[in-house]
Design a binder for these strands. Structure first.
Length: 401
RNA sequence: GGGGAGAUUCCGGAGUGGCCAAACGGGACGGACUGUAAAUCCGUUGGCUCCGCCUUCGGAGGUUCGAAUCCUCCUCUCCCCA
């Protein structure tokens, strides 16, 4: 993955295109120059807490920046926060995170690496993966006190979410205040030259600088990436259902990107594809549907591969553009003569017979292409598959047993 | 140590004896339309042997013809004062 180093200014431009804050720009130029002069790869830290299992495409933005560094010949240092996860990052939250069990943390860590591996080359010669329990697990109470003595209450209370909670009379727990210090301590431990984080991480990133200086290291450069909004333009979040999971199958991922609202396209192009600004510009001047199709193809070929992207684009066009059947319809073997509502449930197309009845009532159900209206109709099944369809996206070929 | 608030259907959050399978918002799903799984509009959103029946409102009991709503105990959350 290592390539010949780019001139500093070129690298700088490529990096800054994908960041929202750079602390400091001069510092960034300086480490890039130093790295080139000493031909030493920069240690670029990125920490994630394994607090949940599904990584989505919004999380991919900083990881993609990490990958850009990797391609420039630098060394990503991935910190799996199995220590900090036990505490939980209070950033942006107005309540405490529930503490996670050891088992949950271990499970989440494993799924994280799988997902991140889609974006970043995790081979040990081009990437360093560290678990921060490595240094936190062995600290005793006096070590904690020593760490705590590095920060001041006033400084920690500058944080927005702490400040807000204090003024709203919501609790701010002592251990939460230690979180930024822990993240900063990670930087000291891995001697990072640069740390990347989402743009809500700036405060925590700064702690790394502070602690590194106290320990006699040079302060890391902090880079934050812009926030990628969800498909509907709101903050990307699972509860809004507006995210794209990194592990989504190609067809699904393609469709999800196609459901992006038009206004989001330009950001998504910039933050998720390698296209240049002028290329993006000209794509956006064309038809929005074509542009979105291009975006979807780019994203799918990035996270899957080019041929899946092509296949996904084809089947999307066929299924939704021309309203034809998808190319693969799952089969199920069922008893012949069941009432339609029960048949749909057995085929797994609906969650319950009540649900089936509702769908039929709403005109969503087709049997062999014919709209069905009677939930009690007995459906004979034979060796020739009977095509069951619920809505535009649920299909099954039923065969009698 | 003292005082107070609360646990509701996927989520948030109404409801404080019958009109409650439970408002409203979010999410999800369906239909129409289209430029697409955009946008917009309309509708659905506990289960079943479905014009009727069954099980839900933290857990266990109790009062009542009738309880998400009242009482008792339990579990768990949260706030304020000290």
């Amino acid at each position: 993955m290592t390539s010949t180093p780019l001139p500093v200014e070129q690298a700088f431009a490529q990096i800054s295109r994908n960041t929202s804050d750079i602390v400091t720009e001069a510092g960034l130029r300086q480490v890039l120059e130093l790295s080139q002069k000493e031909s030493r790869p920069l240690r670029v830290k990125f920490g994630i807490d394994p607090t949940f299992t599904h990584v989505h495409i919004g999380h991919a933005v900083p990881i993609r920046l990490l990958h850009i560094f990797q391609q420039l010949g630098h060394l990503p240092v991935l910190i799996i926060g199995d220590g900090t996860a036990r505490l939980g990052d209070p950033t942006g939250r107005n309540d405490q995170r529930p503490p996670l069990s050891k088992e949950e943390v271990a499970h989440n860590s494993a799924t994280y690496l799988e997902q991140i591996g889609k974006i970043l080359d995790l081979s040990s010669d081009v990437c360093e993966v560290r678990y921060n329990s490595e240094w936190f697990a062995g600290m005793d109470f006096f070590d904690c006190l020593r760490l705590a003595s590095r920060g001041t209450a006033a400084r920690l209370l500058e944080r927005d979410d702490f400040k807000k909670r204090m003024s709203d009379n919501l609790p701010v727990h002592l251990h939460e205040m230690l979180y930024p210090l822990m993240q900063g301590w990670d930087s000291v431990q891995v001697e990072s030259d640069i740390e990347i984080g989402g743009n809500d991480q700036l405060f925590n990133l700064h702690m790394g600088r502070l602690l590194q200086e106290r320990e006699g290291q040079s302060a890391q450069v902090c880079l934050t990436t812009p926030l990628l909004l969800g498909t509907d333009g709101r903050k990307m979040s699972k509860t809004y259902g507006n995210h794209v999971p990194l592990l989504a199958p190609a067809n699904d991922m393609f469709g999800k990107v196609m459901s992006l609202s038009d206004e989001q396209m330009s950001d998504w192009f910039r933050l998720l594809t390698p296209l240049t600004d002028s290329e993006i510009q000209s794509i956006l001047e064309g038809h929005p549907r074509e542009a979105k199709g291009r975006l979807a193809s780019e994203v799918v070929s990035w996270l899957h591969d080019a041929s899946s992207a092509e296949a996904a684009a084809d089947s999307f066009k066929r299924q939704f553009g021309e309203k034809k059947l998808p190319d693969e319809i799952p089969e199920c073997k069922l008893e012949s003569g069941l009432a339609l509502a029960n048949l749909l449930k057995e085929a797994g197309l609906v969650g319950s017979t009540s649900d089936a009845r509702r769908m039929i009532q709403q005109g969503a159900v087709k049997v062999n292409g014919e709209q069905a209206s009677d939930p009690n109709e007995a459906i004979p099944l034979g060796e020739t598959p009977t095509l069951l369809q619920v809505g535009k996206r649920r299909f099954s070929n039923a065969i009698g047993v």
